[in-house]
């Protein structure tokens, strides 16, 4: 079996994603469409939440990916800091806009659900607040990459920012447990006995979660390929200027 580190070679990464990316992209569209159609059209209304329960099929997968995207960026940043593999730094850069959009979707769908259910669009609840701070970290991360011209310096500084922001990624996941207060409930899904969600909702929700994960993967692969090409062009231009 080939080592994972082989994919740190940009050429190997490009060759592998040449055939992998179309498969992941098609799977992402099919699974997400199936999950959302299932959730929107074929799930019953909840006895307390009414039809707003259908928002969960967007909110939970988006929030999950917002946090997981940051954690993926953290792993990629650590690989960059420790082993100096350019592809991992570029993959972290490519993941940031996807994570930011997932965070926005989580915030918007949460507000749209919260207004009729909690009677407010927003509350300074620990989970909501840490999620908003996570979004600001995403914006800062994207801005820092754009602001620094030297790619290695950019990768170093954004990796440090990523390490700091990881605190809020973890907080936004576990804030409800840490503080045990606020409007936001605990995890919607749990492996603990006596879980609260019926399979009529769980099945389409799991489908949407897989779909959003595939969307993330497809976009990160696309973005990383673009960043590799952009980096090559920058290197060639610099070499030409030196000659």
């Amino acid at each position: 079996m080939s080592s994972l580190w082989e994919y740190a070679n940009p050429l190997k990464f490009m060759r592998t994603t040449d055939w992998l990316l179309p498969i992941v992209a098609v799977a992402a569209v099919v699974v997400t469409t199936t999950g959302l159609i299932w959730g929107f059209f074929f799930t019953p209304d909840d006895f307390r939440q009414g039809s707003t329960v259908k928002i969960v099929f967007l909110h939970v997968p988006a929030a999950l990916m917002a946090i997981n995207a940051w954690l993926m960026m953290l792993v990629a940043s650590l690989v960059w800091l420790i082993r100096r593999h350019h592809v991992s730094a570029l993959a972290a850069r490519a993941a940031a806009p996807v994570g930011a959009v997932m965070t926005v979707i989580g915030l918007i769908t949460g507000a749209v659900w919260g207004q009729p259910m909690w009677g407010t669009w927003w509350a300074w609840d620990p989970r909501l607040t840490s999620f908003l701070i996570l979004f600001l970290f995403y914006l800062g991360y994207i801005a820092m990459w754009s602001a620094i011209d030297d790619p290695d310096t950019g990768a170093d500084l954004t990796a440090v920012l990523c390490l700091v922001g990881s605190v809020f990624a973890v907080l936004s996941r576990y804030a409800a447990n840490f503080w045990n207060q606020g409007l936001h409930q605990g995890a919607s899904l749990s492996v603990a006995p006596g879980t609260r969600m019926d399979w009529a909702y769980k099945a389409p929700l799991y489908t949407c979660m897989v779909g959003f994960g595939l969307i993330f993967l497809a976009l990160v692969l696309t973005g990383t390929r673009t960043e590799i090409r952009a980096r090559r062009m920058k290197a060639l231009a610099a070499r030409e200027r030196m000659a």
Partner: peptide
């Protein structure tokens, strides 16, 4: 489906989210 009194909230959540995802994908491509 009959979304009852929350039709606006549910429909707008889906339209905005799908719009953002499609726009993001188009921008990447």
């Amino acid at each position: 489906p009959d979304l009852g009194r929350y039709a606006v909230e549910v429909t707008s959540a889906y339209l905005v989210s799908l719009g953002l995802l499609v726009a993001l994908a188009l921008w990447y491509v």
